[in-house]
């Protein structure tokens, strides 16, 4: 049986892991290789690296970081942030990323997703969807796609957009609730469930985790295949191992790596 995945997300700026609230007040949180090794040892199923470097001329630093991490850990690595062209996708895959996450560029030009997945395979194209609830309290729920860290509305319906992205060649969707991101109040499980029911590809839940219970809810209520979280792991509030033990106790199938008799 396929395991549900637990994925720590690392924000990268100028070759360092950083943490902050909503891209502001960034503080250094360590060397990417060391942080990646720590999560790998804790039993992370994948890692997501998000390049939040403001200037696009610092890409070589990102490629070096990806290469160093991919040489040190042997679990899948997804890299996103500023992916605009097939050349960007290729450069990240060549540096050692297993999947590339596309966000704003897909909104600007949906066919970019098709071009990238035709060339490199659907299995390595993740489309990141940032959605915000736009319906009023007593209305049926409706979400729209936002770009620029949740500041810019696009008018696109999130569920229709998710279906379109899969049709265009997304192999996986990373769905972030912009309402919940940074609030520690849990995923928007209604949003997740609506998308999970509408698309046939795996779904990664993101935005709002403040407790281990939230992870479980994203999987059970939200119907996600994987749960992504940042601050509960970075702050040391919980290890990935604790998260997995919690999920196991609540009947979720997760990978519990067996210690091998011989270490490599």
């Amino acid at each position: 049986m396929l395991a549900k995945r637990v994925i720590p997300c690392l924000d990268i700026n100028a070759g360092r892991v950083v943490k902050g609230v909503k891209f502001e007040d960034l503080r250094d949180a360590g060397d990417p290789v060391e942080v990646a090794r720590r999560y790998d040892a804790q039993g992370a199923d994948e890692l997501v690296f998000l390049d939040i470097t403001a200037s696009s001329d610092d890409r070589p630093t990102l490629f070096k970081t990806v290469e160093a991490v991919a040489s040190a850990i042997f679990i899948p690595l997804t890299v996103g942030g500023g992916v605009r062209t097939c050349a960007d996708v290729r450069a990240l895959l060549s540096a050692g990323a297993d999947k590339v996450s596309i966000n704003t560029s897909a909104v600007l030009r949906p066919d970019f997703v098709t071009e990238a997945s035709d060339r490199y395979g659907v299995q390595c194209i993740v489309v990141a969807i940032d959605a915000k609830r736009v319906s009023k309290k007593n209305q049926p729920p409706r979400w729209e796609i936002f770009t620029h860290g949740g500041r810019k509305a696009t008018g696109l319906d999130a569920i229709e957009w998710a279906a379109l992205m899969v049709q265009k060649g997304a192999g996986e969707l990373l769905v972030t609730s912009m309402d919940r991101d940074g609030t520690k109040s849990g995923y928007d499980n209604e949003l997740l469930r609506a998308i999970a029911d509408a698309v046939p590809v795996p779904l990664i839940a993101s935005g709002g985790v403040g407790s281990l219970e939230h992870l479980e809810q994203g999987l059970s209520l939200g119907g996600a295949d994987a749960v992504l979280a940042a601050s509960i792991f970075h702050s040391g509030q919980h290890t990935v191992g604790e998260a997995k033990q919690y999920l196991t106790r609540h009947g979720v199938t997760v990978r519990m790596p067996a210690p091998l008799a011989v270490t490599i």
């Binding site: 049986m1 396929l2 395991a3 995945r5 199923d45 659907v122 299995q123 192999g171 996986e172 046939p200 590809v201 795996p202 295949d225 994987a226 990978r255």
Partner: peptide
């Protein structure tokens, strides 16, 4: 439960 294809992730 619907089957998602590709089979993507960790399995025993």
């Amino acid at each position: 439960e619907r089957l998602k294809v590709p089979h993507m992730g960790w399995n025993r």
